[in-house]
């Protein structure tokens, strides 16, 4: 495996959707190529930092406005 082929396999590697043999090729390449190892690691961290983000709390006014509108629809449906 060369650097270009590693790049092609990178997405599936990050999603853990690769075969054992491709994974082994990637790991062997990374033993030889520090740049690709760093690329793999920093891509993994990129995904992780976004994955770990909790969304901000919903403003109470937004929640209340939504539930009032739901109530109106509910009354319309019941009618």
């Amino acid at each position: 495996m060369n650097c270009r082929q590693l790049l092609d396999a990178l997405g599936d590697y990050l999603d853990q959707e690769i075969t054992v043999s491709v994974r082994r090729e990637i790991e062997q390449h990374c033993h030889r190529c520090h740049k690709c190892w760093l690329l793999l690691e920093t891509c993994r961290k990129t995904v992780a930092v976004y994955e770990h983000q909790e969304p901000p709390e919903l403003p109470a006014a937004v929640h209340d406005r939504l539930m009032k509108a739901v109530l109106r629809i509910r009354r319309d449906i019941a009618r």
Binding site: P56, R65, L66, V70
Partner: peptide
């Protein structure tokens, strides 16, 4: 789910006011 949907909407439409409308429309 609304906090996640609001964040998603902000990321698509780019501002909170429109995103709040998107959130409301989606849940309605």
């Amino acid at each position: 789910y609304a906090p996640r949907i609001l964040r998603l909407a902000i990321r698509v439409v780019g501002n909170e006011a429109d995103a709040e409308d998107v959130l409301q429309e989606a849940f309605l």
